[in-house]
């Protein structure tokens, strides 16, 4: 169980990204965070694994206080939290295999890993992860030689290497062709069904309805909604996204997932 209490983040330049946000995520949930660009979704996800340090508030995960963790413990926490990014964040000049192996850094012997020496079990694990996302044949390609959808699958494989209990997905499909959205989210859904908790920020409402078990909405850093996806009707939509918003669908036809 992940508990977020009174989370506030003010950036050094004065921008208030999060204002007193509190919610809970039970194990095994697929929680979707929605909101306009700049509403604080990315900041919220990055506070959970402390890529960004919150200004105030507390985040606890199964009685571990993430916000108070010293560096070594923080690294142990981070290795159990997989993260998938909007821009994939792969090292473009490195091979797909190296990028996937990076997911194992938190577990590897720090000195051997600096020399690029990995235990054989980790290599097998990487091959399996790549097979799982269907791009085992691309293992030796350079990351930037892959298409956007394939790069995001490498990102997922990298997260899988961490054997995570929690996956943070920051707009995982926003940089992709809408038709690819379902194939990527499908992998996240599978992981969720295997017991991993997923916290995912999304733009398209139809994807929210399709994948989320629960939804929270942010507006200007304030939590304005928390509930089931079905509860987001037209009025709620206008409230979250503003009066002028028009709903756009990611895909008109449900993918054959």
């Amino acid at each position: 169980m992940l508990r977020i209490q009174n989370l506030t983040k003010v950036y050094p330049n004065g921008t208030q990204a999060l204002k007193d946000v509190s919610f809970e995520v039970k194990d095994g949930e697929f929680l979707v965070v929605i909101g306009l660009s700049g509403s604080g979704k990315s900041t919220l996800l990055r506070c959970i694994n402390r890529l960004i340090d919150p200004t105030e508030g507390k985040i606890t995960w199964d009685d571990i206080d993430i916000t108070a963790a010293p560096p070594a413990e923080l690294r142990r926490i981070r290795r159990q939290i997989g993260m998938v990014f909007q821009q994939f964040n792969l090292v473009k000049r490195s091979s797909v295999m190296t990028n996937v192996m990076n997911g194992r850094l938190g577990y590897a012997n720090p000195w051997l890993s600096l020399l690029g020496i990995w235990p054989p079990t980790d290599k097998q694990r990487a091959v399996k992860a790549l097979e799982r996302v269907g791009i085992a044949d691309k293992a030796s390609s350079r990351a930037d030689a892959l298409s956007g959808g394939q790069q995001q699958r490498v990102g997922i494989a990298r997260a899988l290497m961490q054997e995570p209990r929690l996956v943070l997905a920051d707009e995982p499909v926003a940089s992709l062709d809408p038709v690819l959205s379902h194939s990527i989210l499908h992998y996240l859904e599978q992981l969720n069904k295997e017991g991993m908790t997923v916290i995912c920020s999304l733009h398209f409402l139809d994807l929210v309805h399709r994948y989320a078990t629960r939804v929270i909405a942010l507006k200007d850093g304030i939590k304005v909604f928390e509930g089931l996806p079905a509860e987001i009707d037209r009025a709620k939509f206008k409230e979250i996204y503003g009066e002028e918003a028009q709903e756009v669908r990611a895909t008109t036809v449900e993918a054959s997932a």
């Binding site: 690294r75 981070r78 090292v91 990076n102 850094l105 600096l114 290497m161």
Partner: peptide, 17 residues
């Protein structure tokens, strides 16, 4: 590109890694 640095950090790597 700060992206990959962020991603590697998120896996629990230390600063040398």
């Amino acid at each position: 590109d700060p992206g990959p640095i962020e991603a590697v950090k998120a896996t629990g790597a230390n600063w040398l890694q």
